[in-house]
Amino acid sequence: MRQMYAFLLTSLDGYHAGPGDELDWFRTDDEFERYSQDQGDVIDTIVMGRRTFEMMAAYWPTEQAYREDPVVAGFMNDLPKIVASRTLTSHPWGPTTFVADDVAAHLAAVKAEQGKDIAIFGSSTLVGELLPTGVIDELRVIVNPVVLGAGRPVFAGAAGPVGLHRTGVREFRNGNVLLTYRTMPGAST
């Protein structure tokens, strides 16, 4: 069975976005870019919530995106996307499937198909809602060495405790730390 992982960035104090939903505080460098590019080799489906989808759809199909990061732009534009949304039903950035109800069941069915891994990029609220369902197998959380003091919590909308087992720690030269966890739904610790 395919694996599904969520890839999130957070501040040290646990915010996925700043007070005005700004994301300009993420620290990136060549090492981080190589890590991001390598994700395209192991996935064949991308999952997003509506807000993340709209933000990414405004950037990745642009000439600027292809100029700045042609590898990531290539897989972001070419791979099938599944978007959890109760308001969007179509969009020119494709290939895209919109799912309004029972997102976890839809994703479980996709996981049962043959293919590479499935990645959820960003979409902290969606990740928080999906964690207790058991459909997410792994969390990859990049902790940025910055304290925001306010903003949108990284697991906003989390619907209950989910135990995690740390499987890896990677330090980036720019101060970011990648924490990797296997999920243990139903376990509180």
Rank of each mutant, 00 (worst) to 15 (best):
M1R: 14
M4L: 15
L8P: 00
L9T: 05
T10K: 00
T10E: 01
D13G: 10
G14L: 04
G14I: 02
Y15N: 01
Y15W: 03
A17R: 00
G18N: 00
P19Q: 03
G20F: 07
L23C: 04
D24N: 13
F26P: 00
D29P: 05
D30Y: 06
D30A: 13
F32E: 13
S36C: 04
D38N: 15
I43V: 15
G49I: 06
R50P: 06
E54Y: 06
M55K: 10
M55G: 03
M56W: 08
A58N: 14
A58D: 15
W60K: 06
P61K: 01
E63H: 04
Y66R: 11
E68A: 12
D69K: 02
P70V: 13
V71Q: 03
A73K: 01
F75H: 12
N77V: 11
S85E: 10
P95D: 13
T97C: 07
F98D: 10
D101R: 14
D101G: 11
A105V: 09
H106F: 08
A108T: 12
V110G: 08
K111R: 14
E113A: 07
K116Y: 11
K116N: 13
I118M: 04
S123G: 12
G128L: 04
T133W: 15
G134T: 14
E138A: 09
L139C: 09
P145H: 10
R152M: 07
P161T: 05
L164F: 08
R166S: 14
T167G: 14
G168C: 14
V169M: 15
F172C: 12
R173T: 15
R173G: 15
N176Y: 13
V177Y: 08
L178F: 09
R182S: 12
R182D: 08
R182C: 04
T183K: 05
P185N: 09
G186S: 11
A187M: 09
